[in-house]
Every structure is written in structure tokens, then in C-alpha cells.
Write a protein that binds this DNA or RNA. Sequence first.
DNA 1: TTTTATTTTTAAGTAAACTTAAATTTAATA
DNA 2: TATTAAATTTAAGTTTACTTAAAAATAAAA
Lengths: 236, 236
Amino acid sequence: MQNFNSISVENFIKTIYQFELREGKDTRSGSIAKELGITNAAATDMARKLASKNIVAYQKYKALKLTADGKKMALHIVRRHRLWETFLHQVLGLNMHEIHQEAELLEHATSEFLLDKIDAFLGNPTTDPHGDPIPNKNGVIEKEKEVLTLSAAKVGECYEVCRLVGGHKEFYDFCQANKLTVGAFISINKQYPHTKMTEIEIGSLRISLHADLAGMIYLKKLKKSAEHISSTSKNG
Amino acid sequence: MQNFNSISVENFIKTIYQFELREGKDTRSGSIAKELGITNAAATDMARKLASKNIVAYQKYKALKLTADGKKMALHIVRRHRLWETFLHQVLGLNMHEIHQEAELLEHATSEFLLDKIDAFLGNPTTDPHGDPIPNKNGVIEKEKEVLTLSAAKVGECYEVCRLVGGHKEFYDFCQANKLTVGAFISINKQYPHTKMTEIEIGSLRISLHADLAGMIYLKKLKKSAEHISSTSKNG
DNA sequence: TTTTATTTTTAAGTAAACTTAAATTTAATA
DNA sequence: TATTAAATTTAAGTTTACTTAAAAATAAAA
Ligand SMILES: [Mn+2]
Ligand SMILES: [Mn+2]
Ligand SMILES: [Mn+2]
Ligand SMILES: [Mn+2]
């Protein structure tokens, strides 16, 4: 494609891409800086530099946006990240948090050649262990399905957990401890809008989650009945 | 152990370590610079910097030497490199040259945690696919066996190929094309000291190699007879 | 042992990726 | 709307890992 980008540049581009998608996150330079653990000044410098290379569409004081080129780059990095996550999970058995951490480094040290080998070895997977879609070799990614979070789910309905969008250890520890894994089946017992709590049932467990956590758990509605569900859970 | 070293520092330390071992290679700053593709001036800078951190024992105009600390660091990098090579070969089926290239990058992006997982997955291997020993977790490496190269082998004797010390694609391509793999059995037909050629027999093949290549192929003497050998070759 | 060639070091400078501190702009609030 | 607060940008400076060019030291050749 073009010459090679540094780790700092790759992380910067990837972060903008991810923040553009996730609601509740903006792509102002300050937010990107905070996520990357650098100062606002450094983020501005980087934004200006990438703008000169037509990777970022930069306007002073405005939110950062990727150009078409930038987005394509981001998708290639995301592909490396998610294929590594899938590989580390399936082959070496690392857990949700561990795969993320390791992939964060490996994504910057992986040739196209090696990536193809990993992809083929895994049988060209389309989602990673967190339920996130893996862009294909051309940078094409399955567009976000009409998903809803646990916070927005309807009382009485049954759902399948299809995505865990966290990133931090504590979140995944909580999910694992409560059998909230991708593919798990749950039903909604009650919503408490004022306190922002959701009470769910998973297997024989009944747990209450605050929106801070529930908003990171994405669901897919099921047709099946609740009774049927409890006996066919994929995970657990 | 200590804070983290950059990729440049890791490659520098590793190169000194490897050049210290390989005969025909010296560790003068110019040699290291050439190997790393940097200028002599840059190598001198790095040597002085690492000397200030007690990683390199540096004296002006003298060959570079690692301190005890430096050697320990080098062994940890070598461990990462060789475990990755083994993993890529055994799990993803990459060839001799490919594993080296990829490991050259991955070795700098691998946590102790992940390395332990890889090590355990492989069953704590002690040699990599090139026949090179893998240092253990504490940086202890099996000391070089009394090995001889193909150039120095005796006519009429039988040997097992135990190490391919090349590094460049063409060498490995040549070896693979001629069934010269680690574990292969060969016998020496003739030595031509003046032209520095060695004629060997491997299976039904009879090939002649110049010392430039033959010097990179290490052998272990066998007790078995040549007849027995041809029917029990591990590789091929 | 001179002279010459090679190697190494020093000096000065660059680019990337940061930092802190001050100036500017935008957003929020009284 | 005027004032204050928060975010962003600019300016200036640092560290790392290089570079080129000149000076100094070592090694090789005459
Ligand atoms: Mn990363
Ligand atoms: Mn993921
Ligand atoms: Mn390397
Ligand atoms: Mn090797």
C-alpha cells in the first residue's frame, strides 16, 4: 500500500476509528489523547502530521476524522488485532482480557504474510472472541448489526449475548465470573430506569448490573422460549 | 527485571551476543553496524549509551562486549526469537527463512506472560527448527556442543545434520531443495581442500558444496552404518 | 619506519514522538 | 451578554535513534 507506519501512528489511527463507532465516545483530540495516555498537545501534533499525509481530516478545534485512506489503514490494524485475539484465544487459550493486551502489541509486529497464515489457520473467521467483526483482507467489515445493549433490553424477552465491548480487565473478569460470555443466553427480569440497573437471569443465576456495565454487553433477540434456552446455552 | 528496552537496543544487544559466539564474526562496532544497517557513528553512540547503563563493556577502539547483565538480556531476546520460530514452524508451518523473518519482529512484541504460554504449548522445547538451543526462563542456555561443519567432516564418515546457521533466504532455499534439513543423515564422499569443495551423499542425491555454504551446516557424528542410515532418515 | 588506507570516534544536525507552559479558542454559566 | 471554565493549539524544549562530515586512532602496506 504505502510506506510503513510507526506504532504511535497505528495506535492513533485505530483509536480514532474505534471512537467514531462507539456511541458515548467522541473523537476530539482530548479524548484520543486520554485514551492513548499522551498530552493534548501531542495529539494535536499527530493530528496535524497525519492531516499532511491525508490520513486525518483535520480542522482546528473540530473533532478528528479519518479520511478514506485513514479508515482503510485503521481497518487493516483492526484486522491484525482481531485475528491475533482469535488466534490467542483458540490456540493458546488466553482469556478475554489477556488476548486484548497481547494483541495490542502483536498487531504492530505482524506482516501481511504472517497474517494470511493466521487467517487461513483459523479458517477465515468473521468475528473475534469479543464478538467484534474481523475486517477481510480488503478492509471490508461487516456493518454493525442492529444491536442493543443490556440496558436497553425489554423485560420478559430472551437474548443471546453477542458482543462484549469493554477493554478493561475488571469488566471481563466480571463477565467471566457471571457466565456472561459471547453466545450465552439470558432473559431480562426487570429494568430500573432511575437507578440505571438491569436485573437479568442467566442459567440459574440472577444478577443486577448497573448501566456502566450493562451498556458494554450487546444482545441479539431470540425467538425461542426462555425454557428452551436454559437447556441449550452454548457457553457455561 | 528492569525497565523496557527499545527495539533498536534489543537488536543491538542480540547482535553482539550472536557475533560473540559465531566464529568468523567479530564484535567491533563496524561489524555490528553493518549487520544492523546503521552507520558506524550510530553504533558508537549506542555502545556508549549502553555502557552507561552497564549493558555493554565499552572501551574506545576495542571490540564490543556484553556485561553479565547485557548477556542475560541477550539470552532473553534469543529465547523469545527461538520460541517464536519453533511455534511458527510447528503450528503455522512456516519454512526456515520465514520463521526467522517473522520472529525478528515478534521477539520485540512479546510479554513474559505470552512467552510462557507459547513455551508450555510447545512442551518446553530445547532447540529451535534451525537446531539452535533455546535458553530457558532463567536465561540458561545449553552450551555449544562440540560440533563440526560440513567443511571439516571426514571422508567416509556418516553424520546427522544438527544445525543450519545461515539467516539468509538463499541458504535455506538451497538446503530445502537439497533435503539438507535438521535431522537429515549424510555421508561425506570427498573433500577438495584447494577448491574448498565438499562432496556429500544424502539419500540418493550426490551434491558438492563450497565452504561458504558447507561452513553453515553443522554435523553430529553417527555410530550407525551408512546403509542403515538411508532407511531411517527423519526428514525428507 | 613512514606513508597510506581503514576504522572508529567526535561533532553537528535531523525527524519522530513526546513534554511543559503559555496563548488562544470554544463552551458553559451567571 | 459578560464572565469564567475547559479544551485546544502554539511555542519551546527533551530524548531516542538515527544521519553526514570531519577529526583521530589503529591497522596495513610500502
Ligand atoms: Mn496497539
Ligand atoms: Mn476484540
Ligand atoms: Mn529483531
Ligand atoms: Mn533460529
